[in-house]
Design a binder for these strands. Structure first.
Lengths: 207, 207
DNA sequence: GTGTTCAATATTGGTGCCAATTTCGCAATA
DNA sequence: TATTGCGAAATTGGCACCAATATTGAACAC
């Protein structure tokens, strides 16, 4: 149990709510509303908004306030390209440094993803997907990279699991997860790269 | 002329001063000192510190304040690896999209860099170097990428031009600039990648 | 001489208030 | 009916002050 809520918690709560669509793109984040909703002080609220502004999740206009950023097509494409650059480049490090234990964990996560698709556990699927990609990136042992990609993921339009394009597409994503684990186990960097690229490219709103 | 200093100016001033070594790593950035030094309000000061904290240039401890971040070797290596991933990947886009005019501009910047080495214009060299790399990245037409790399560059230990390793090393950097322009002009992505990798790797504190 | 306790000091963090700015609604007019 | 103008309301931004917390230094005990 925590005795007091830290500023990081507020940031995470706000981020989660924006990501979940509680605040839709374009809507104003009024300081009074926020400090009531999260029972935070004014300064904490301002600090959190400033942080989210730096993360490009919200935008700011002087004397008007902060509002949820509505990513345009151009910047969405740019960020997706950056993710492809980072995660395909990371593949080189992954195949070099991955341990058998990590491969096993990744396999478990890929399996859980598939199971949850079959059981239609919509929200869990979303979380498992993120867990898989986080674990995958963790194998290259670069903490700064993991942090950076997490931030970039939030800059792509909110992808609520509820509106995933189609069952077929999700199942395809699940298969790709297994393909990644296979390529990783076989230390085939080029194949891993190709799968990652296709995975991010096609399912840009789903991973 | 601007009639009022914006919050972005304060952030840039602080960043520049930290980068220039006015505030050395580890030293506390007391709010009162800063708001006097830059003639800014308390809230502007807090906002700027929070932004720099997000950019990983300063760190924060509750109830103690903000201090200049002293990057350790591990995170420095991590960030350098990220830069190599991004800038070598960007090479693909560069060779595809670069215009003759941009190549000419890059050549001019590479030349200016060399001239300033000869004239021992220390501070100008540093700025020209950044201008070259910025212009190089600009050729792949991804504004988000440029922004990201600019931020990453600041996360590597302050590289004051005054303590560049050696004349030979700087001159080598200058030659590599020309080599990059050549590879770019010949649309040789692989060669460009190799040069960029070596350039960032060897001269991690100089570019 | 060394270590500890406690008070004085310094700094950050929170709150309430007021000013500046913007937005919104309503009325007046063409 | 559409448009313009004006005033009220809402919101942010800045300031001063107080509370909370951490540091420092001095006195004191051993």
């Amino acid at each position: 149990m925590r005795k007091k809520k830290s500023s990081k918690d507020l940031i995470d709560l706000l981020t989660a709510d924006i990501s979940a669509g509680v605040f839709s793109p374009g809507s104003w984040l009024k300081q009074i509303d926020l400090q009531r909703r999260y029972e935070a002080s004014r300064s904490e609220t301002r600090k959190a908004l400033e942080t989210l502004c730096n993360k490009r999740i919200v935008r700011y206009e002087p004397n008007r306030g902060y509002y949820v950023h509505h990513a345009d097509d151009v910047s969405t494409d740019e960020v997706r390209d950056i993710r492809i650059m980072l995660e395909t480049s990371a593949a080189e490090f992954m195949v070099k440094q991955v341990t058998d234990e990590q491969i096993e964990d990744l396999y478990q996560l890929a399996q859980r993803f598939m199971d949850q698709i079959r059981e239609h556990k919509i929200t869990e699927i979303y979380e498992t997907n993120i867990a898989f990609h986080t674990a995958l990136l963790a194998t290259c042992g670069n903490a700064s990279l993991m942090e950076l990609v997490s931030d970039l993921r939030l800059r792509i339009p909110p992808a609520p699991a509820s509106q995933w394009s189609s069952y077929a597409r999700i199942e395809q994503s699940g298969k790709e997860h297994f393909a990644m684990v296979d390529a990783l186990a076989e230390k085939d960097a080029d194949r891993l790269k190709a799968i990652i690229r296709a995975h991010i490219d096609q399912a840009s709103t789903e991973n």
